[in-house]
Computed example of a mutant assay.
Amino acid sequence: MNLRTWKLAKRIGKFLGIALGAIIGAYSVQGFIVQAGLGGGGIGGIALLLFYTLGFPIGIVNFILNIPLFALGWKEVNRIFVAKTFFGIIVYSLALDFFKGIQPLQLNDVFLGALYGGVLGGVGSGIVFRLGGSLGGTDIIAKIIQRRFGWAMGTTMLMINALIILASWAILGPKIALYTLVSMFTFSKTVDVISSGLPAKSVTIISNQSDQLIQRILKELGRGVTFLHGQGGYSSAEKNIIICVVNIAELGHLKRIVKEEDPHSFIIVQTASEVVGEGFAVE
């Protein structure tokens, strides 16, 4: 397979992945959110409110209301993103009406509907985001804000959807509005995990046994390390500093290595919300 064919296959694969994410997102809405009578955020939330009050089809309304935001995305974001988003909106809108009336589970608990709908919807949108597209609505606005200010997309969507929650409160009642908020929070956190990966840990180790620690970290964890030279502020003695990034599952093992080699070492653990590189997320 030559390079040109490989790039074409990779591009087609991304569009198929976006279609899968859009279908999962639509399934979560019709299968759990609508069944539980919950609202939503952004354009999808407006489409749900119009469905509950006037009976308008969710998919068609979602597509029509996304047109102005799609035009905004065309001006503000690169055209590859716009093309992927337009494709995602079409698949998502069609799937929303295709899955109308589906009930994968007989839910008698609104909370479960909010939980399942939020997680599954977040998985679908997260897949689309990770492949460089979106499902329209506030996703486009969140993408623009992320590009300009670096804010997490899930958090941004949660903030700008506050007005839709207030509308749900007035139309659907306070109980449903609160459960909708639970669904949206679950959705946003799932999006962040899928699109950015689980938070890693950046560990700074100050130790007099740095050589032994480096050897064990490389051998037992297979993680690279950065070796720095420092100086103690009180003693003025030279200190060896190790910086290593590990995932959450590896953190306990790293701590055991440090404790075994140097019980008097000093460890600083910080959360790295996203790490791109060998052994971690690669865009």
Rank of each mutant, 00 (worst) to 15 (best):
R79F: 00
I67K: 03
I102C: 08
K100S: 14
P68C: 06
N78D: 15
L65W: 14
A114K: 00
G113Y: 01
A83Q: 14
T53P: 10
L69M: 05
F70K: 11
L107F: 08
Q103S: 08
L49C: 07
W74T: 01
P57E: 05
V82N: 07
F70R: 10
I64H: 13
A71C: 11
F70V: 05
F51G: 11
I58N: 03
L107R: 03
L107T: 06
F111S: 01
L72N: 03
F99D: 09
F56S: 04
I60T: 08
F111Q: 07
I90G: 08
G59H: 07
I60W: 10
I58C: 05
I46T: 14
I46Q: 08
N62Q: 15
G113A: 01
L115Y: 06
G59L: 06
F56W: 15
A71Y: 13
Q103E: 13
V91I: 15
A95R: 04
L54N: 14
V91R: 01
Q103R: 14
G73A: 08
A47W: 07
F87C: 09
I46V: 09
N62M: 10
D97Y: 10
G55W: 09
T53V: 10
L112F: 10
G73Q: 07
F98M: 03
L96S: 05
D97K: 03
K100L: 10
K84A: 00
L96A: 11
F87Q: 01
L94R: 05
